[in-house]
Design a protein around this nucleic acid. Sequence first.
DNA 1: CCGCTTGTGACACCGAGTGCCATAACGTGT
DNA 2: ACACGTTATGGCACTCGGTGTCACAAGCGG
Lengths: 184, 184
Amino acid sequence: MTSAHELAAVAQRLFVAGGFDETSVEDIAAAAGIGRRTFFRYFPTKADVLFADSPRELARLREGLAEARPGEPYRTVVTRAVVEALRIPPGEREWALHRAQLFFTVPAVQAHAARVWAEWRRLAADHARTVPHADPLFPVAVGHAVLAGTLAAHEQWLTVPDEDLDRLLAGMLDLLLPPEPPPA
Amino acid sequence: MTSAHELAAVAQRLFVAGGFDETSVEDIAAAAGIGRRTFFRYFPTKADVLFADSPRELARLREGLAEARPGEPYRTVVTRAVVEALRIPPGEREWALHRAQLFFTVPAVQAHAARVWAEWRRLAADHARTVPHADPLFPVAVGHAVLAGTLAAHEQWLTVPDEDLDRLLAGMLDLLLPPEPPPA
DNA sequence: CCGCTTGTGACACCGAGTGCCATAACGTGT
DNA sequence: ACACGTTATGGCACTCGGTGTCACAAGCGG
């Protein structure tokens, strides 16, 4: 009996050691002591093992955006929500770094990431719709800015792993989030 | 004898008519009167038929960025370069719209798009490195802003196809490109 | 003990992508 | 015209990801 979490751990270890494409599902199943068919009952695709906790991250983003205090600048709210959603639990830093590496280098993984990212964009855009703004493009732009900032921060993080992801996220979002319109 | 261009046309028509995943390479090959194996000599993957002219777009972006006049604000240069690179030839508007639709809805296509998009980011980031800026994150942020603006414009375009893509691109980039530092 | 559900995995199948090889088309040199 | 090398083609077999079907075993309530 194997839990999805353990299975994901086994798989990611193999990916990091031998490459994503080079590691077959059969390899993973054998390493976990299960059948190939059973793997696909835990995860619909090979890439999905890397997205085990993205629903949790999404939920945290949603909560963070909902916690906006009235009068608080929207950029502050969004930045806090993103940083909070992507906070790395202590001890999982190297783990997260390896995962980020796979995200940026393996095309098949990015295909799946695209679906999750679309959800991020949607959440951010929905929140931006609560901010009055003259430009009708503003909400969609905010959605893409949030995603771009998140990806940029991770990309930068990969080249400077010693830096804190929090600071990179805040820095990138500060550059990318469109300015709030003056309160008139 | 089939040219790559004709083959791409046949394939995209089938994709639009019957869906990307539902259309097999064998279907495409049969419709084009060639063998399955030969298809893979023209295009390394099924998705690649949709990226036939992305090298040209990339080249145009590169040229546009190189044409910066001294003293011109970088945001102006970047916006002009992007709009110019993605200018749709007359008569291909519907064609481009269909392609954009596939880009946003089919995961397998996005995986390939990711590679092209990384190149866009790199070009834009390289150009941003010529702009003096206090924040070391500025170049990477610009790269992601360009990509985000391009994607946001296309996403918006899909919901409002009557709008001009040029205007949407300019509008999104205006919201997303980080401000230029004052000339000191 | 029976019957039901649930987890598991073996098998067969499809489609994408690849390596290998046979063959047809074609230009060139004699 | 003939032989030659090169190139385009496509058939065949294979790997791998993913799916549907079925059989089997474990568990649990009657």
